[in-house]
Amino acid sequence: MKLAITSALVAATVLLTGCNEANVGTSASKRPDIAPYMGADNGFMAKGWKPGDQASWNAEITKRNQLQSEYSRIK
C-alpha cells in the first residue's frame, strides 16, 4: 500500500514539474507595443536588415517571401 501511495506521489510530482515552465520570449521583439521592424540585435537577424529601419525590414520580408514562393522555386 505504501508503495502505491509513494508511486502516485512521485508521478504527480513529475507531472506537475512539467507545468512549471519558464517565461521564454519576453524580449523587446515580442512586446506588442513595439513595431516589428524595431527588433532585437541578435545572431538570428538577416544579413541586410538594420534594426529600426522600416525600409530594410520591408525589403527583407519581401525577399524572404519570394524565396518561400513555390512558383519562383519551380523555375
Rank of each mutant, 00 (worst) to 15 (best):
K50Q: 12
D53W: 14
P51M: 03
L67A: 06
P36W: 02
G52A: 01
A55P: 09
G43N: 07
T62M: 08
F44D: 09
W49A: 00
W49L: 03
N58T: 05
A46P: 13
M45A: 12
A35L: 05
I61C: 08
D41V: 11
M45G: 04
Q54S: 12
S56V: 02
G48S: 11
E60C: 04
K50Y: 11
G48L: 07
W57E: 00
N58I: 05
N42H: 10
I34F: 11
P36R: 06
G43T: 08
T62L: 14
I61Q: 15
S56H: 11
G52R: 01
W49Q: 03
A35K: 15
D53N: 15
A59E: 03
A59Y: 00
G52L: 00
G48M: 08
G39P: 04
G39A: 13
N42R: 13
D33E: 15
P36V: 02
N58H: 05
W49N: 01
A40S: 11
A40E: 14
P51T: 07
D53R: 08
A35R: 15
S56Q: 03
G52S: 00
W57Q: 00
M45N: 14
R64Y: 08
I34G: 07
I61H: 07
D33L: 09
G52W: 00
M45H: 08
I34W: 08
A55N: 11
W49I: 02
Q66T: 14
E60W: 03
N65W: 09
I61D: 01
Q54P: 04
W57S: 01
R64C: 13
A55Y: 05
S56N: 01
S56I: 01
A46G: 10
A40D: 07
G43K: 13
G39C: 11
N65I: 09
A40V: 13
K50D: 06
G43D: 08
M38R: 13
G52M: 00
D53V: 13
D33W: 15
W57Y: 15
A35T: 03
I34K: 13
N65S: 15
G43M: 02
D33P: 14
R64A: 15
P32N: 09
W49T: 00
K63P: 01
I61F: 04
W57G: 02
K63Y: 09
M45W: 00
A46C: 04
K47F: 06
K47M: 08
M45Y: 06
W49H: 05
